[in-house]
Amino acid sequence: MEHIDFAVIGGGQSGLATAHALLRRGLRPVVLEASDHAAGSWPHYYDSLTLFSPARYNSLPGMPFPGADRDRYPHRDEVVTYLTAYADRLDAEIRTGCRVTAVRRTGDGFTAELEGGRLSARAVVAASGTFGRPHRPALPGLQEFTGQVLHAADYRSPAPFSGRRVVVVRAGNSAVQIAAELAETAHVTLATRGPVKFAAQRILGRDLHFWTVRTGLDTAPLGRFLARPPAQPVLDDGRYRAALAAGRPDRRALFTGAVGPKLLWPDGQREEVDAIVLATGYRPDLPYLAPLHGTLDDEGTPRHREGLATAVPGLAFVGLEWQRSLSSNSLRGVGRDADRVARRLAAHLARR
């Protein structure tokens, strides 16, 4: 069996940032990426996805996000190109097509079981993100609904929905972006539990991220104090608020049930709907950690303190939402968390 020092599970932004942080300390990580491409989930997001933060705030450590216009909002494919270039420049061993199926404790270290083999590691960083585990909440009537149901993870473009009746569930950034795009060619409702909350994209001529960075909110260690992370408002330059005001899409309170292809609305109306798009977010995708007793709670959420597993020394996480701060699971913030985790893991191994 092969023996390594650091196994980094996941080759997206979190895994790449972690590898960079370990390399800076003279350590040699091995990045294990399940897909055939070191860009994480980005290639699989919907075609029109546009970041809500300017290019200047979307860099991983050691390599600025490219382009002359630092205030533009990059598209999905720009991020894929950037992460691919970052991986190519990184002096780390990145093994693609290498899916980890289980991690087990072995003495003072770990054994990672792969599809087709095993390896041992002194420390493990779980940086596999959330895209592989779309959250599908138990909405009223969803199981009885006979129309098409898909998660935003499966949505690519509005073309297949042209002229159809579509309901998009939730009031987050992706939900509003997808609903507004669909409404250009389809009859779309944004179904939410409450009103859509907006935040201005620009304040006093500056993007909102300028202010969160300048005030320190972006990096404030708030994660440890949040039993449940707050819902973030939709960042808007005015276009989405205007679209909702014009009824393209319209907004309604969440449906109360379903009968076959018809949804039941709170006002008693029954309406035939072709498709429901669940823009209901994701959960940490960490099934391979199940053999490590005490690492995950009953919902599969990791037990950690600022990225370090509380029950298993030598195990850490990078890229969790609100792992430490508002920006923990973003391009602009994951490097800070990765550096902190790498420093503490290196100290842990030095004591052994």
Rank of each mutant, 00 (worst) to 15 (best):
L278M: 11
L235V: 15
D36L: 09
P195S: 11
V103Y: 03
G205H: 06
S35R: 14
R122A: 15
A39L: 03
D91E: 15
A338Y: 05
T310F: 04
L289P: 08
A121F: 05
L139R: 10
L22A: 13
A350K: 12
A246Q: 14
A175N: 08
G67K: 12
G26M: 08
H37T: 06
P266H: 05
F161V: 06
L90E: 04
H293N: 12
A245N: 13
A112C: 15
T310D: 09
G97S: 07
V31R: 05
A180L: 00
V259Y: 00
I178R: 00
A171E: 08
L292S: 11
V277N: 01
L139S: 01
G307T: 06
Q201T: 06
V125M: 04
D297Q: 07
A123T: 13
L296I: 05
D77C: 00
E115S: 10
R70S: 14
A242V: 06
A245V: 04
R70C: 03
G62E: 11
A346L: 01
F110A: 05
Q269H: 13
E181W: 00
E113W: 00
Q177D: 15
Q143G: 15
G281T: 11
G132Y: 03
S41L: 11
H151S: 10
L244A: 09
F52Y: 14
A199V: 14
A180D: 11
G15M: 05
R270W: 11
L182E: 07
T215R: 04
H209D: 12
I276D: 02
S328I: 09
A85D: 15
L16S: 04
R303G: 14
S157W: 08
A220M: 14
F210R: 05
T295C: 13
P261H: 14
A39C: 11
E115M: 06
T295L: 04
D88G: 06
R105C: 02
E321S: 14
P43R: 00
T18H: 00
R352I: 09
F145Q: 03
H151P: 09
V213Y: 10
P291A: 03
D207R: 10
R70V: 12
R118T: 15
R133W: 01
A126H: 02
P43L: 02
A55N: 09
I178T: 02
